[in-house]
Each structure stands twice: as structure tokens, then as C-alpha cells.
Amino acid sequence: MQRRYRTIPDLKVHESAHALAFEDPALAGKLTAMGLLPGTLIEMVRAAPFGNAYYIKADGVRLALREEEASSILIDV
């Protein structure tokens, strides 16, 4: 059976997808205020040098997210 959604860490470098929903309500408040909304196009830029964090672009805005934060954001397939 195929999964209907992925999360940000599933993205390959330079791959893009649209955000669908947030699993962590507190983080959702913060991210929406920063401009990452459901529907925003997210591009994976690179992983952090020592791992555990990602550099992404959300609609042109550069953001750094931790592994847990990134994996709480559902994206389309």
C-alpha cells in the first residue's frame, strides 16, 4: 500500500513539494507566523553538516528546521 503523504526529511536535495498539514500544534503556530503555511512550496536545500537539521526554502524564505520539526510537517507526494 502506498502512503498518501510524506514529511520534509523524505525530500531529496533540490526536490520540492507542497506543505499539507502540521502534526505539532505549537510548532504550527510558530511556522505559520513565519510564513510556512499549508500549500506553501517547500524545497529541500541541504542537511546540516552534523545532521539532525535541514535547510529548506519555503516560498523563497530560507528556514532551518530540526529533524523532529521537519518530520512533523506533512507534504504531498
Binding site: A26, K30, A53, L65, E69
Partner: peptide, 11 residues
Amino acid sequence: ESSYLAIELPV
């Protein structure tokens, strides 16, 4: 308490 990174990397 949960801890966040979520930071903007400015131009």
C-alpha cells in the same frame, strides 16, 4: 517543555 530550532536564515 518542547524545544524548537525553527529559525529564519536571512539574506
